[in-house]
Amino acid sequence: MPKIIDHDQYRKELLSQCFDLFAEKGYAAITMRQIAQGLKVSTGTLYHYFPSKEVLFEQMVREMTLRDIRSAVIETHQKTSTLERISAIFQFIERHEDYFIKQNLLMVEFYQQQKRDGSDRLSLFSQIWKDHEQEISDLVAIKDRNLLELLGCFIDGLLLHRMFDPEEFTFQKPVQLIMTMLKLYLDQHPESV
């Protein structure tokens, strides 16, 4: 009797295993053959699910984003205030710092490669943000889109500084400062939450 395969689940399992392969070799350097070898599947199987490396990467980023949001929801589900939720998110990011640094580096490399290739797919990351903006807003209990974007920029900058100076630059001081600033801002702008 033939084996019954849930193709959508299998595709997701393949995607979940791809991150480390991309992080190890880099988006531009890794080939579909190397990805297939790393996943222990045939190249034909890989192409059956993903017609190109670009499509595979884009689907992987979308799946990672969903997984990250779900994990963050678990982290914040018992937190009631906006500041408690944001603090929990910072703690979550700090615990998984290496993963988030690798993720940002891959996204920048993908962006650079797309730019070099003259691709019109540069909007992947803005599209993912738009697709999940409401979930992120609900996650941290902030309605103000500008404040959400500022927090995203702060997190990206924090990870970048940690990457460049992990010995001297810690999470604690800048997070403590932004939390103080957020408290003052939210006290003066309660409509933001």
Rank of each mutant, 00 (worst) to 15 (best):
M107N: 08
E168G: 14
I30C: 02
F100N: 03
Q113Y: 00
I93Y: 15
I93N: 08
S71E: 12
T65R: 08
N146E: 15
L106C: 07
I93D: 08
S81D: 12
E75F: 09
R11M: 10
I89E: 01
D131R: 00
E75S: 14
R145P: 14
D144G: 06
L177Q: 14
L184V: 02
Q127A: 09
L14S: 12
I142D: 03
C18N: 11
D131S: 06
K115M: 04
S52E: 04
L158E: 04
L105D: 15
S192P: 08
C153V: 14
V61I: 00
H189V: 13
L159D: 13
F92M: 14
L148F: 02
M181A: 13
D68Q: 13
E149R: 12
T45P: 10
H77L: 01
K40V: 09
M32G: 08
F90L: 07
F57I: 00
F154H: 05
L106I: 00
H48Q: 09
F50M: 05
Q172V: 08
E135F: 06
R33V: 09
Q172S: 07
Q34K: 04
E58I: 15
F164W: 04
E135K: 04
T45H: 05
T45Y: 12
D120Q: 09
N104W: 06
R33Q: 04
M163L: 11
R62Y: 02
F90K: 11
Y10E: 11
K12C: 05
Q134R: 09
Q113P: 00
R70I: 01
R33G: 02
Q127R: 11
D98R: 10
R95H: 10
L46R: 00
K53L: 07
V41K: 03
Q172A: 05
M181E: 15
S16D: 12
L122M: 09
V61D: 03
P2T: 13
D8F: 14
F90M: 15
Y185Q: 11
I142Y: 04
A28H: 01
W129P: 07
S52M: 00
G118P: 00
D98S: 12
R162F: 00
Q176E: 04
I101R: 06
R145C: 03
L184P: 13
G157E: 02
Y27R: 03
Q103S: 13
E24D: 14
I4D: 13
I142P: 01
M163V: 07
D117H: 12
G44E: 07
L151H: 12
L122S: 06
R116K: 07
K25L: 01
E191Q: 14
L182W: 11
S42Q: 01
D8S: 13
Q59V: 09
P174A: 08
L83T: 08
D117W: 13
A23M: 12
L39S: 03
I69H: 05
H132I: 02
Y99T: 03
Q17V: 10
Q114R: 09
L147Q: 03
F90N: 06
R121I: 10
G38W: 07
E94S: 08
W129D: 11
D20Y: 09
F169M: 10
E24K: 12
I4P: 14
V140F: 11
I101D: 04
E63N: 06
Y185L: 06
F110S: 12
